[in-house]
Amino acid sequence: MDLETIKSTLEANVPDCRLEVIVNPSPSGQHSLLVDAEHAFAVASFLRSSAGFNYCSNVTGIDWPAKELSEKVKVKKIVDGVETEIDEVSKTMIPGCLEVVYHLFSMSEKIGPLPLRMRTQDRAEGVHLPSLTPVWRSAELQEREVFDLFGVVFDGHPDLRRLLMWDEFEDHPMRRDYVNPDDYEYEPTAHDDVLQRANQHRSTVGER
């Protein structure tokens, strides 16, 4: 069963779901299926019950901060009454999001992995996604881990607490803009970014 077949079956069975095949250019050839958050639960339930994907092996998050894509475009402009061609840099902001990937396998058909992806609206307020723990119990601890380290809130998770960090911890350490706390320890061989951190520590706290 290839991805296109799965996609068309899903589109036929889950009305209104928006699916997109994300092509993976690496030699592994593991192309994935992006599903919208609204229909993710229905899609997952269908995959589990009718498409045979009963083994949800791996659940993980990915942080995609907003980034700026700059492209050089040749634009014709009238400068001093003469039409000339100027290079103009067009900048487009790609909004950031948090992504959750579920690696699905089928035990009976021995196929997989099928990476199923969901994306949040943004990285600040709209970080809610439906929990797929009711579909695959194996997501229970792993969704807690994604909540803990990335800050994705899974609606419908039976017990959404921090998993690895302590309950009072504020931030989400796996986000790419996470700032390390200033808990610098004396290190005699500091260089590069460790040295930078050490100097920063010395300037704010003073010599240890």
């Binding site: 005699p188 061989t189 500091a190 260089h191 590069d192 460790v194």
Partner: peptide, 11 residues
């Protein structure tokens, strides 16, 4: 080796 050392213990 300084660059490649995983825990950066060489100076």
């Amino acid at each position: 080796c300084e660059k490649e050392c995983p825990p950066k213990c060489i100076l």
